[in-house]
Write a protein that binds this DNA or RNA. Structure first.
Lengths: 206, 206
DNA sequence: TTTGGAAACTTAACAGTGTTAAGTATATTT
DNA sequence: AAATATACTTAACACTGTTAAGTTTCCAAA
């Protein structure tokens, strides 16, 4: 009899629908407004039911953070066809910025919020999602160094520098720190600064 | 009769002691644990009294954020004696990183948290503290461009790029995203990446 | 077919948050 | 002495994440 199988399916479905509801609330109302109670209301269950499927709120946020990395990964994937590693690096930068602009909430969860990182210390100690993405960057940076496009001594330090540069631009923008600029300029500052950045890199690449 | 004067002094004192208590809680327990009630407990007044001296919690956080800028400003001040603008820029970077490491909570409030920025939209529209600091950077960047140390077309975009690079390194570090690196390396990654950054800049400066 | 028990879910509560309306002392003015 | 203004507190509202205890539902064995 497949009763147990059906029950297992139903459990999985509720598990999924909790995450779906969480995603909807998160994308509609933002990080701050994503509460256990608001998720529960969306699926028409009591708040405590959620704790039967997720250990705590951080576990849900971690799952959403993972979704974000899959989304970013899918955008990065198409760049595998770029043969020249230096062109690939530059394109990765553009994709990264575009992602941060298109999905600021996902971006925040992936690279700024401390909540998802709490889960790491508890169970699996390694940040798989971030690791995979960073490895992709390192691979291209190593190629760039080999082929004389970038002047770094240390692959990891150089990769971190590139990552941090883009992250800094996106994060300062997202957190309203562009108010130090004219209103018109602050709107496009990330693109402008990225252009200056590319110019710096090109001075090495050519 | 100086009774009104004495009362005025007492009001000012309570105003200050609220901020002092807020600072103590903030530096001891961190941003998340800085609640109106914990501040009130420290000064042995009821939580509602605080609202007679500060409009809301954001107003207190704004005041603390301003303190942070004074602190950073005092660290930057000594660099005025550095004649060479390129050396000055590089020294500013070191001071900035050191500040972020020494005072992560202040740094967070100044450059990451949205709370203090909320106050801007309400009253004075301009972010005076950030503006002043950024102007200091722009001044040196403009000199560097003039004297051929930096290859930027746009002073503001270039300044933003430099700022964002340092901010990105500090913020990713603070938010635990250095877990993509070996444990030993993640401890010193900001210094390592900054070293790579300086090497890139030096390629132009010399 | 009824009974026992496990599984799934809910109710109610705890301890905390920012914030405010209403109430109470205290001190000053009329 | 009575009225008023000032300073502060109490109690509450509407939230938050989380958990212990209670209830309902459902399946299996007697």
């Amino acid at each position: 009899m497949g009763i147990n199988e059906r029950k297992e399916r139903e459990k999985e479905e509720l598990h999924k629908s909790i995450l779906t509801a969480a995603r909807e609330v998160f994308l509609e109302k933002g990080f701050d407004q994503t509460s256990i109670r608001s998720i529960a209301q969306k699926i028409e269950y009591s708040p405590t039911t959620i704790y039967l499927y997720y250990k705590d709120k951080d576990a849900i946020l971690y799952a959403l953070h993972t979704e974000g990395f899959y989304l970013l990964g899918s955008k990065m994937e198409v760049l595998n066809s770029v043969e020249n590693p230096f062109e690939r690096i530059k394109a990765m930068g553009r994709v990264y910025i575009q992602f941060a602009m298109d999905h600021p909430d996902y971006y925040d969860l992936m690279f700024v919020q401390k909540s998802p990182m709490n889960k790491l210390d508890e169970d699996h100690d390694v940040w798989r999602e971030g690791q995979t993405t960073f490895d992709g960057l390192k691979f291209s940076v190593a190629q760039c160094i080999e082929q004389g496009y970038l002047p770094f001594n240390d692959v990891e330090a150089g990769s971190y520098l590139l990552w941090a540069t883009l992250h800094g631009m996106c994060n300062l923008y997202d957190r309203g720190r562009c108010k130090v600029l004219d209103e018109e300029k602050s709107e496009q500052i990330v693109d402008l600064a990225f252009a200056e950045f590319l110019k710096m890199l090109d001075a090495f690449g050519n």
